[in-house]
Write a protein that binds this DNA or RNA. Structure first.
Lengths: 210, 210, 210, 210
DNA sequence: CATGAATGAGGGTTCATTCAT
DNA sequence: AATGAATGAACCCTCATTCAT
């Protein structure tokens, strides 16, 4: 993913520290709200290094965003559901997605912000295909198996279902602060997550019944 | 809702123009990205008036946010599904929500931003109950009717279902820019909306089958 | 020369103070060496006003440069030599130019700098013709008169002579610091100026003899 | 001129490459505009070497400036006009100076800049006499010969004439960008140079007629 | 009620210079 | 002799906010 020349271990470490700090700062305060000084301070690095490694603030933003996509993709690629019965496999996919999202609210925050900016940065990304989720492929396989075995309905559009599955996990995380304020409950608690997960699985499997 | 003294018609008009301009500017650029100068210019008003009517920028933000919630609430209150058969009523609720969200991306953008800020402003709102969606009540009624008539399953948590219904419409709007970039399609087209609406209704009704 | 809306007296005064301060600062330290903070401080104005009235630093530079040209042009336009005998008229032109240059070393300094930048700013000026020196016209007239009366040689290229006359006054001012260092004398003293002026007039008139 | 210990051939080569690169960069962008990184990069050298060999940026500037003076001095020393008739000798001097200046616009650019800085660096030079132009001596000799032979007028101040001769060549080069912009012609073309040279020679010889 | 002018704090970015290897 | 990494001080510019009229 990097066309840049290989960095010395020391430089690579500094670069990574900046990247991590930027992820935290950006997720917490957004692109405009994040402070370059603060990122450098969090990283224990000099501001100049930030510019040396990443260019301007917005370039750093894009790098962070791509890294967040890459991290999710990586976990998804290790997800093996081919050996499970269709219903169980489907449940795994739904639960995985929901849990990943809950575990990575910073990913959701970054997406939120990038959409506020009309994906202006992502559009300039040189590597959009790498953002495509392996989950869609997994989903297609499971759907096909389930339909072939007569366990799932046959009129399902895989892309729509993919969007719905992601939506079920994403929404409550993306809006956890406003929702929590309005409903007066903490949607991030383990109990709440378990309830949400069970419900999401139920919805998808219930829908898929032939 | 307003404790302020009544404004002269001219003043009220200026106030409203500022509010509209702020909504547009905030939705387009976020809280941090929005410019007070730009809002005043769009409103054809003097900056000083903005401060006179709304206090600081963040107070204006909160006012705009509350107005967006109020607008949705108002439409929801006019939604009458009590006379429809349960399945049809449910379909109406799902479709309404999805369409409203699609018609009001600025509402989604505001929510996005407010969650980036951990709902810091909303929490200071003096009128949180007004944010509560009438949809939840409608949903409860329909669910109860459907279950009583044996058309819907009985183990449904209304709050969870509410969240899911909103999620199904919200997600693709909130992330329409990143999703469009990745999938290379325009999720905002009428055709795409129709497909999404049909799918969302199918999912909910499919899930609700006893 | 100004297409901008008319400024209030107070604003115009502030604008002018900034312009004067900028002229001094730019002449003393060059474009890159000048400090925006310093200009604002010298002008007793807020930095923001500088940007409000002139745009960026480089725009201010161009405005200052154009003002310097305009100032010289204005003095040249008041120069009336039509009633003098040719030789006297020519001497007046040469002396005027030399003295103006000596009285306005900041003009020379600005030109120096602009040439270091390959006239990048001047080229973007919307009003290049206004930079053209009225002196050239005066010179043509005097040359023609002198030639007609048999007092001047007839093979003179007016543009070349114009360049030479300006050169004779310009060079010692433009390079007064390096020349003074090398020759160990002060080229800016009144005595030195008088000697230079007499010499320059002699050179031109001597050359023009038929 | 160099009091430093003799450098190894490799080190001397690096030093020279840095000096050449600095000359180009300084001439193109001025002292403040030149970038140390860029000089090192152009020289294919490490920045540290630059500091090791030349001290700070301003010291490098002075070294470059002295080198530019030295280069001109060297060519002037090889100029032999003692064997030519006075008028021809004088023409040679005028033409040589004009052509040298035209061939070395970087020398003029450096002088421009140094005068913007009020010759602050040159004044610290340890070797000011080396800057003194051999041309002045040549000029004195020719003037004396011409006067003795009754070919030149006798009231000529050699220093003033020296300044004028240099001025005639220097001005159009120093201000070639602004002049070209205003007059809309390229003063650097060979045709323009030839015209300028012929005119300058004419002016000087015309003036010198008894 | 409305306006134009002004302010000061701080944001992103750049640069000459030095350290550690 | 040479290098890559790091530093901190500024510098240009922007913005929310207030004053004077």
């Amino acid at each position: 993913m990097d066309a840049a020349p290989p960095l010395s271990p020391r430089a690579a470490a500094t670069r990574q520290r900046i990247l991590d700090a930027a992820m935290a700062e950006f997720a917490a305060k957004g692109l405009a709200g994040a402070r370059v000084d603060e990122i450098a301070a969090r990283a224990g690095a000099n501001k100049r290094m930030l510019y040396a490694y990443f260019g301007a603030k917005e370039d750093l933003w894009l790098t962070v965003l791509e890294a967040a996509y890459a991290a999710k993709r990586e976990e998804e690629e290790q997800l093996d559901v081919a050996h499970l019965p269709p219903a169980e496999a489907m449940a795994r996919l739904v639960a995985f997605n929901l849990r990943y999202t809950a575990r990575h609210p910073e990913f959701v925050a970054l997406l939120n912000q990038e959409n506020v900016h009309a994906a202006a940065h992502l559009r300039r990304s040189g590597n959009v295909p790498a953002l495509y989720s392996p989950l869609t492929t997994r989903l297609r396989e499971v759907l096909a198996r389930g339909a072939a075995e007569g366990l799932f309905r046959r009129d399902v559009d895989p892309l729509q279902l993919y969007l719905s599955i992601v939506a079920l996990g994403h929404f409550t995380v993306a809006n956890r602060f406003t929702l929590s304020t309005i409903f007066g409950t903490d949607l991030g608690s383990e109990a709440a997550l378990q309830a949400r997960e069970a419900h999401a699985v139920e919805v998808v499997l219930g829908y898929l019944r032939p």
